[in-house]
Every structure is written in structure tokens, then in C-alpha cells.
Simulated assay, not measured.
Amino acid sequence: MKLGYHTSYWTSKPPAGAVECIATAERLGFDSVWTAEVYGSDAFTPLAWWGAATSKVRLGTNIVQMSARTPAATAMTAITLDYLSGGRFVLGLGASGPQVVEGWYGQSYPRPLERTREYIEIIRAVVAREAPVAYSGNHYQLPFPGGTGLGKPLKSTVHPLRSHIPIYLAAQGPKNIALAGEIADGYLPFFFAPRNNDYYRAALAEGFSRRDGGQAPADFEVVAGPNIVFDDDLETAADALRPWVALYVGGMGAKEANFHAASIARLGYEAEVEKIQQLYLAGHKKDAIAAVPTAMVEDVALVGPPDRVKDGLARWSESVVTTLLISGDEAHLNKIVDLLS
């Protein structure tokens, strides 16, 4: 497996030590560096700012939310970053969820798979620069129908450095994972669990079967990584991540449409997920955190003594994941690299 460094999304302010960690990741031979966004900082700006100090690592977004920008705007930014980085940019996209799409961006959420397909098709057309871009979809139309009536198909003024910029798709449900296998260059899972590897493999295979030739491209990437907490006491290590699991299972999305909760439920935790959601949404966050079993944490993260973490890393290396994402400070990165060596 290749290694990637993830700065994660910002909370109240930029993550401390990101510049130093990125430099360390490149020095240690990491393949890539990734940024993220939710409803605070964007993913592109820090990637450009911090990426300017790098020369070898690929620079990716994990993820850019589609509803935040039109397809053409995203394509423009991708072309620009690809040029500035010397062809090292990877565009990671995701549909997000209805709370963010409709509550933050003021866009309609229904039919996200269809919307994703159209969005990527337009980006591909802009980057290919083979002709002025005209598109007539259910979600996106170029030129815009109506308005002044003066819109016309246009071609990017910039000749892209590459006619094909890699696009990786974030997905959790089987249909969306299959879509990644069908139309994207890579897949970005969240709450990936190695023991559910057959689920991911089957969903990707469904998508690959729809491609010309009916199989996966040789360079198709699956980029994911667990949160890793070292502690000689397993329960203490798990305690550090229970709030994170409870937040996503209980509070990141509406009860009727929480894709993170669905991912955990698919591991056989339907009853536990229901309990965590009920407690979290009722405002009993401490109880929701306490309701997260250690086994659930261990399924989606690596916690405990170094030997236990090393055994867990071996399970990840045997999965569909091709790039292991790591977050944390410089000491953490060095410790994980030592474990893998």
C-alpha cells in the first residue's frame, strides 16, 4: 500500500502543524497529501497554500462537495491546481448529504447519483477541451436555458496541462460505490472496515462491469485510512475515538438520511446505531458516546498497543485499499511508518 497524509477538515481554526506534517510526509516518501471540507474551510485553498511547499507528493481533495460549486467552476480550479502542481492534482468529489446540501448550500439533494454522473461528465468535457461545452441534463444545463438567451457553449481559455485529471468519488452506499467503479478513477470510502471488505469489492466490481472491457482500470485507487490511537490499554485508546464515532453515527446527518450510520449498521450494529442515534439526537451526547462499543471502534479504527495496531494494519493491507490515509502529528507519522517498515 501507498501512504497518504490527510490534514482533515478544519474545526474552529486551521489544524496545528499541518505545514510541518506535510513536509515530513513528503520526506518519508508518502505518495499523497489530502485536504477536506464540510461547512467551514474549503478544500482547495489550503491544498494550494500548503502544496506550494511540496514537489513530489500528489495533492488531493477528500472531499470537495459538489453542491458548493458548479461543475465548470470545479473544473477550472482543477485545471489551475494541476498546472500549479506540475500535474500532481487529484480531484476527490462527494455528494455530501441533504442537511448540508439543502441547509448550507441551498441546493436540491434528491437523485444524488444522477447528479454526480452529470457533474463528472461536465468536468471531463471541460478538461478534455475538445469542443465548446454544451450539456443538457436533468440537473445541469450548459448553456443555461432561459435567462437572457445570450449564453453560448464555451471552451476553457486555458489549455489543460493534462487532458484527463483523475477524479475520485466518495461513496458509502452500494449504488454510489458502484458508480465510483463505473465512472471514476478512484474511490474514497469513509468508515471503511476491513472485515466488510467483500461488500466494497462486490460493489466496485458491479461498477467495473459497466466499463468498456468490463473490468477495473489497472490504476484504479481506493484511498482510505483508519484513525489510529496508541495506548497500552485498549479501552483507554477506544475512549479517545468514541466521541468521533458517536458524532458521525448520531449527529452527522438526519436520522432518516445518515449515511455514516448506515455504514456502521451494515457491520451488524443495527441496534447499537439506533441507540446511539436516539441518545445523540435527544441531546444526551455523553450517553451516546458511552454507548459506542469497543468492537465498533476497532472495526473502523486501529486502537491499542503498537503490536495490536500493527496486526490491524496488516488487515488493511489485505483489503481493497491501495493507499492508506494517515492523520496526526509528526511523531505519529514516524511511529506508523516504523510499524510498517
Rank of each mutant, 00 (worst) to 15 (best):
G4A: 14
S8H: 03
S8A: 09
S12I: 04
P15R: 00
V19G: 08
A25E: 03
F30A: 12
F30N: 03
V33H: 07
V38I: 11
T45S: 12
W49S: 08
A53R: 03
K56T: 14
M76K: 04
I79W: 09
L81G: 09
L84H: 07
S85T: 03
G94N: 05
G94W: 06
A95Q: 02
Q99M: 10
V100N: 02
S108C: 05
Y109H: 06
P110F: 08
L113Y: 06
L113R: 10
E114D: 09
E114R: 03
Y119M: 12
I120L: 13
E121H: 08
I122F: 03
I123H: 00
A125Q: 06
V127N: 05
A128F: 05
G137N: 02
H139L: 11
K152W: 03
K152A: 15
K155F: 09
T157M: 13
Y168N: 09
G173D: 03
I177T: 13
G181M: 08
L188D: 08
P189Y: 06
P189L: 10
F190W: 10
F190P: 00
R201T: 10
L204V: 09
R211C: 06
G213F: 12
P217G: 12
P217Q: 09
G225I: 01
N227Q: 05
I228M: 06
V229K: 01
L234D: 02
A237S: 07
A238S: 11
A238I: 06
D239W: 13
D239A: 15
P243D: 09
L247Y: 10
V249K: 08
V249C: 15
G250W: 00
A257I: 01
A262D: 07
A262W: 01
S263A: 15
I264W: 06
G268F: 12
E270T: 15
V273R: 14
A290E: 11
P293V: 04
V297T: 02
P306N: 04
P306C: 10
R308M: 12
V309F: 10
E318T: 09
S319F: 11
V321W: 07
V321H: 06
T323K: 11
T323R: 15
S327E: 11
D329A: 05
A331P: 04
A331M: 01
K335W: 02
L340D: 04
